[in-house]
Write a protein that binds this DNA or RNA. Structure first.
Lengths: 208, 208
DNA sequence: ACTCTATGTAGCCAATGCCTACATAGTAGA
DNA sequence: TCTACTATGTAGGCATTGGCTACATAGAGT
């Protein structure tokens, strides 16, 4: 090993990279700024020059996470294929990301609702729902789905897939494969959107 | 108040009660065993007599949380009314609980997938899906829903409502009311179950 | 060359979780 | 009643952590 130069040079990137590894191995609780510094062979206060405090590092981690995730989702939505198969692909992209980076996803969402989360962070986090809305509106225009409020439907789809992603990430599905779950979810959602929302059960004024 | 007797008498309960308050106010990160002890006027090591370590306290918190939540869900499922309105009530019970105790819910799910989570804990956590499955099977038998794998449908409903609960709890829905979200979700799910699942990928000539 | 700023170092502090030794209270048995 | 025994609480210690300040070094701009 050559002597470490006084200046690391890419400490910030290195911190984020190593932190990404650590949280997936040991959880957020297992992340220590000092241990991070030791891992990278710098002093315990060095990280403080790049991140005001631990939360700042988590925020940066979350931002990178959202960017990566949104990139995957967008790519999935732009793939060739019918509306429905693209819908399924978007769902898979989301759920797969959740399964691959469960702790990161948790960090992403916990920092997203943190009081001083930047507006950018919030905005990035909503890209997913925008993609879903666009796809649904397109399928409706093509007559493939029953006409309805696409914003509302996108919200529900996003929420449902988020739930699937969270549970899959948390390994809370004993014996249920992730793909089975994803398909079951997209099937039911799509069926609902195809059928539209008939006022059921005789005049239950349920709709708000 | 009278002098504290040497033995607190109900320290365990008091710890859990106070911890429940603290986590909702300051998050899990803000929970400290020593501060907890100070709040209750006991020595800093006293909590250790009731909870092996911090995680043990969180586990106990999670168990109580699941019991309370399942009690509410079960109560909702046993209320009078048609299948669909009971379905909505179950959803509301779940989402309302999530909104009322967002941090507790996060603790519940994080400890649930923890390696040494007790089997009891895992089992309790699955009560919700059981309730949903029973209701769906009942509605199918009554001819109200299209025949299908009720286990699979219950899984999807659970997953979707879980997502709704998580996002509502995380306050990630700018300007969207929790009730709107809950109804939008149950509407779409119910519509899908009424319509049944058309053949995947392609046979889209249904409804619309 | 000289200064200014960015980056990294070294040391300090209070707080935390967990550990061990000890103190006290309530209980059960002789 | 006296005496263990166990449950519960206390006191103190230890390594670790996050965050702070003062200082050292490097590199860029003048």
């Amino acid at each position: 090993m050559t002597d470490q130069p006084y200046h690391h040079g890419k400490l910030r990137e290195a911190l984020l990279a190593r932190a990404t590894e650590v949280i997936e191995e040991a959880g957020v609780e297992g992340l220590s700024l000092r241990q991070l510094a030791r891992d990278l062979g710098v002093s315990h206060a060095a990280p403080g020059k790049h991140f005001r405090d631990k939360q700042a590092l988590l925020d940066a981690l979350a931002r990178d996470g959202f960017r990566g995730m949104n990139a995957r989702i967008t790519a999935a939505s732009e793939a060739a294929g019918g509306h429905r198969s693209r819908f399924v692909r978007i769902a898979r992209a989301y759920v797969d990301f959740a399964v691959s980076h469960p702790v990161l996803l948790a960090v992403m969402h916990s920092t997203k609702h943190h009081p001083d989360a930047s507006d950018e962070l919030r905005s990035i986090g909503e890209d997913g729902i925008r993609v879903a809305r666009a796809l649904i509106a397109e399928a409706q225009a093509a007559g493939e789905l029953a006409p309805a409020d696409s914003e509302r439907l996108a919200l529900v789809c996003f929420v449902s897939l988020h739930g699937a992603a969270m549970l899959a990430a948390g390994n809370l599905l004993d014996g249920t494969s992730v793909d089975y779950l994803t398909l079951a979810t997209t099937d039911l959602l799509w069926a609902g959107m195809v059928a539209g929302m008939p006022a059921p059960q005789g005049a239950s004024g349920v709709g708000a």
